[in-house]
């Protein structure tokens, strides 16, 4: 596979909850070893799109191609073994389980034979967790919980990592830490598809970016292109010159 190989291709997707349609004919792509970011105003359908990719809501039509196979009819619990891992925005840890147990859970569905090696890699990315392995995850701070959640997803050795607003509710000090980590994760060979509210920062690390408005594609391009786009800046980034 080349570096620009599509790992995920969402085609004309119409999806929502129950009988309500939220997404209308949405198209997005994620490429191998790249970060794709979805931004947009509240209610644009960003999280709905991520949930649709991970088969957590209703898909009415369109297709979701992962690694050249359609996953639109797959059950959620079967996607981890295919190499997709998802970190939800909230309630993304098992609070009564220890940090170590949370990380272990990530390996169960993935048939990962090198658990010790993966654990070492994850603790290398999140050294703060090493001292807290036996602590219940529910006792950690918001930033540490996010690290546990991302760490658990990485324990399954995913090819594609879906992140739903990984910086939501975190202090500004943690924002840069999380964005740096996402780049480190990408550099280890994991493709990332991320929904993010902190659009300016997210666009800086995005290789590809999509702006959703009212459940439809509004803009797409590289992060730099969108940061330089006057309409995008005015409508979604609070105006101002690109930095």
């Amino acid at each position: 596979m080349t570096q620009d190989t599509k790992i995920l291709d969402v085609q004309n997707l119409i999806a929502g909850y129950g009988k309500t349609r939220i997404l209308e004919q949405v198209n997005i792509e994620a490429h191998l070893n790249k970060v794709a970011v979805i931004v947009g105003p509240n209610g644009a359908g960003k999280s709905t799109l991520l949930k649709a990719v991970f088969r957590l809501n209703q898909c009415f039509s369109g297709d979701i191609i992962y690694n050249q196979q359609s996953i639109i009819n797959h059950e959620t619990d079967s996607l981890v073994s295919l190499g997709i891992a998802c970190v939800p925005q909230t309630q993304n840890i098992f609070p009564s389980l220890s940090v170590m147990e949370n990380l272990e859970i990530g390996t169960y569905a993935a048939n990962n034979p090198n658990v010790a090696q993966t654990l070492e890699h994850v603790l290398g990315l999140f050294p703060d967790l090493a001292a807290k392995l036996n602590q219940p995850a529910g006792e950690l701070s918001g930033g540490q919980r996010q690290m546990v959640a991302i760490g658990r997803a990485l324990m399954s050795k995913p090819k594609l990592l879906l992140l739903d607003e990984p910086t939501a509710g975190l202090s500004p000090a943690y924002l840069e830490v999380i964005f740096d980590l996402i780049l480190q994760i990408r550099d280890t060979g994991v493709s990332v598809l991320m929904v993010e509210q902190n659009a300016k920062q997210a666009l800086r690390i995005a290789d590809t970016d999509y702006v959703l408005v009212n459940g439809e594609n509004a803009f797409s391009g590289s992060g730099k292109e969108l940061l330089a786009n006057d309409e995008v800046r005015r409508s979604f980034l609070g105006g101002g010159a690109p930095q």
Partner: peptide, 19 residues
Amino acid sequence: KSMRAVADDPELASICGLK
């Protein structure tokens, strides 16, 4: 451990690939 995880949060357990 899977049972304790499902007791904590069944949807997250499913997201983690637990049956």
